[in-house]
């Protein structure tokens, strides 16, 4: 029901581990530098981006905090960020630990888990440890680029400070 009708990717091989680590790093730096317009491009056209809490994840519950199915929904989030949503300006800095490579779900994909911390800096200068958790990623090659086919962001805490409007 949420099909994004685009041409199927011509995928020939799985990405390398280096490509996966570069993707994870480039994604974080791009968000930290507030280049949100390119954020959806880090995903495949039919990707899942899901932010949830450890509690929901462990209980197998489908609703967390954000759920985008397909790049279109990610583009809507970006548009809403720039023209609809209202919030106090702030920026992130991601600190990401070394990735652990997991048993792949298919020959074409690489799966990795990476822990992260995100420090949020407000316009007033206030800095907070905003989010702590792990990324569970599945990366494939689409249109000759490594992209996330699935990125599940699992927050350690059930509690979000104020709001989330910039993707984690």
């Amino acid at each position: 029901m949420h099909n994004v009708l685009e041409k199927p990717s011509k995928q020939v091989t799985a990405p390398t581990r280096d490509q996966v680590m570069d993707l994870i790093t480039a994604y974080a730096h791009s968000v930290d530098d507030m280049r949100l317009d390119v954020w959806p491009q880090f995903f495949t056209s039919d990707a899942l981006y899901h932010v949830t809490t450890r509690e929901n994840h462990e209980a197998g519950l489908p609703i967390g905090v954000v759920r985008c199915v397909g790049r279109g929904m990610m583009q809507d989030r970006v548009k809403a960020f720039y023209s609809a949503n209202i919030f106090e300006p702030h920026t992130y800095t991601h600190i990401i630990g070394r990735s652990e490579f997991l048993e792949p779900t298919s020959e074409m994909a690489i799966s990795a888990r990476s822990n992260f911390q995100i420090v949020r800096t407000m316009e007033t200068g206030r800095m907070d440890l905003f989010a702590v958790g792990r990324y569970l990623d599945e990366v494939v090659i689409e249109d000759s680029q490594p992209r996330f086919r699935k990125r599940v962001v699992i927050l350690d805490s059930r509690n979000v400070d104020i709001l989330i409007v910039i993707p984690l």
Binding site: V65, N85, L163, V165
Partner: peptide
């Protein structure tokens, strides 16, 4: 996605 801490419709209520 419309509501909650990252709700597209109502996240403004957080601030």
């Amino acid at each position: 996605n419309l509501t909650g801490a990252a709700g597209l419709v109502s996240l403004e209520d957080g601030c």
